[in-house]
Nucleic acid binder design. Structure first.
Lengths: 340, 340
DNA sequence: ATACTATTCTTTACCGCTACAGTCAATTCA
DNA sequence: TGAATTGACTGTAGCGGTAAAGAATAGTAT
């Protein structure tokens, strides 16, 4: 390894003190013109790059944000991360990316790791509640900012949040299906997180509002993965009077549900209409384009970054804010759509 | 901010030296049973977490890998990152994620930032060659490992690589179209990177091998984005004797090409067969499922992580390795597929 | 009893950088 | 002319940790 260029070296070669070099690099006022120029010349000559680790140690801030998301494979969180990256990068912050694999223990481990690495803040899409609330509560007192995105568990944790109005999302989707003239509208639940429950609540609310009946067995347990939707749909298809529409908790699961429908020889949307949620990339290029309730992930990421950077900035707001990204219906073929 | 628990504090409360605490935490042999137990008890009591920044400063390694990819939106690189994360996380390494937005200047800036942050190694999918070769060459002498993935520019840079056999990918795709009985097979080029050029070479090689003629104007400039494929296909569709098949440089562009075809009232694959490359997620769920040449991104990421961790490990290999992830044809409807 | 060797700690130095409190000469002020 | 001010720099300490070498106590060999 070549000799690393440090401020010490620059100072030595120039016969000035390390402090002087530091001041030049930090644009302090009390350095003479000539000296400043000499230092800058040397910095350029040696290709000096400051050591961020050392700086972090003294300043007690790393200019790094931790990101803990449950899943890297489906595009949803990744698109949020893209939004985060835009803002963070522009403000000189780095992103330390971790995946919890929807596993509370791994989530805890990752957060601990981020804590050890002294990140200034954490953007978290937390897995199912319970276990880690204590840890999250403690983050604030450790001087680590927290913004929770997309998921609304851990109500006891005081932090900023960027959420969607899931109740409205569920209502939009279901109302749309009712409007399409569907009579037997089922719902494939997501995992047991508040988020998914609210979409289910929206489903129920819409049915009630329009006086549409639904059998209890039309609400089936599913999940957020393609396989979950597939399995759940299989169960729905086994019911005697067949359902003619399904609001699925999210898009990957909705895609799984469509697969199950096709496998049993039925058509989407003629036999069963499908509406998902999340508006994942390529959703409009599917074999049957998927009607969905979507909201801007990019915006969600950007808002999260802004809230977090604000909080860890010099004068943080004294109250915690919740930004709601409004959902909107994106009508495509799978629900009968414009053509039906 | 609460008092941070440091080794100093533990040492003070226990009346031992900081070094003793350090040794206990690092499992050194020269600490007595009783003392070790007392220290560990205090560590648990205070919930001590080591400060990774301080440790990094002394040890001169951060246990962090930088990842610079051109694009976070399309799934390809993200899936590679998922593979990376699996291995890195398991070995206690963190991932600092940056996007270059296909922009050489931003790439350079991000690499510089990673350097300042003292990452142990960098996983890079570099944008179009030229500018940053010098920087990349220097990384090694700065003690920063480098593994280039997916892209094969910068031939002068000595580092490990994880690539696909693009020539073979192009040949597989084109040979398949020939096998489907297509006569007028066009190619939509990717951006001017070696990677894409090789796929074009494979296209030409396959045609030559099978004695199939192609007009020069059947090779049109495109890119790796959906819009590129769309635009290029529009041009192809304007040609008088219409082409009946297109090998598109990658999947997003192929999807764009299909859109252009549909817009002009033609069918895929009946009128024009399409083969893409990359096997992006959801490719099998498109309106017309996309035939493509794919390779495991997860494996690509994992291999990259292994190569890099190996190189920055205690006894790095003395030669640089190139791992080739073999491509394979994934036949779906868009090429006429099994049904034709 | 004396010297030698472990065993178990402690002391000191340093990683690269910044904050804070000087120092020292050249002005400015009264 | 002497004191106070200003401008341009330097010295020291410390961020939290680890490595290397030294010291104190106990145990063993001679």
């Amino acid at each position: 390894m070549a000799v690393t260029t440090t401020m010490k070296r620059i100072a030595a070669e120039l016969g000035v003190s390390i402090t002087t070099v530091s001041k030049v690099l930090n644009n302090r006022e009390d350095i003479g013109h000539a000296t400043r120029a000499r230092v800058l010349a040397k910095v350029a000559e040696l290709g000096y790059q400051p050591n961020a680790v050392a700086r972090s140690l003294t300043l007690r801030r790393t200019r790094t944000l931790g990101v803990v998301i449950p899943d890297l494979m489906y595009s949803f969180f990744v698109e949020v991360v893209a939004g985060l990256e835009t803002i963070a990068s522009a403000r000189g912050y780095g992103l330390l990316l971790c995946s919890s694999n929807e596993n509370a223990a791994k989530e805890r481990a990752e957060i601990d790791l981020l804590r050890q690495r002294q990140v200034d803040g954490i953007v978290l899409a937390s897995v199912n509640a319970s276990g880690n609330t204590d840890l999250l509560k403690r983050l604030g007192s450790l001087g680590i900012g927290l913004v929770m995105i997309d998921r609304d568990d851990h109500p006891a944790v005081k932090c900023d949040r960027v959420l969607t109005d899931d109740l409205k999302a569920g209502r939009l989707a279901t109302t749309h299906l009712i409007g399409q003239g569907r009579k037997a509208i089922a719902h494939i639940l997501g995992p047991p997180i508040t988020h998914a429950k609210r979409r289910a609540d929206g489903y129920r609310a819409a049915l009630k509002e329009h006086g549409v009946r639904a059998r209890p067995e039309w609400i089936v347990r599913g999940g957020f993965m393609e396989a979950d939707g597939y399995g759940a749909m299989k169960k729905l298809l086994a019911l005697k009077p067949r359902v003619d529409a399904v609001f699925v908790a999210n898009d990957p699961a909705a895609i799984g549900a469509m697969k199950a429908i096709w496998e049993s020889g039925l058509r989407v949307p003629e036999d069963v209409a499908i509406v998902g949620a999340g508006d994942i990339a390529l959703g409009d290029l599917l074999r049957v384009p998927l009607t969905t309730v979507g909201w801007s992930r990019d915006e969600q990421g950007k808002q999260a970054a802004r809230l977090l950077l604000d909080r860890i900035g010099p004068e943080p707001s004294d109250s915690f804010r919740t930004v709601v990204i409004p959902p909107q219906l994106i009508i495509r073929r799978s629900s009968g759509g414009p053509a039906a």
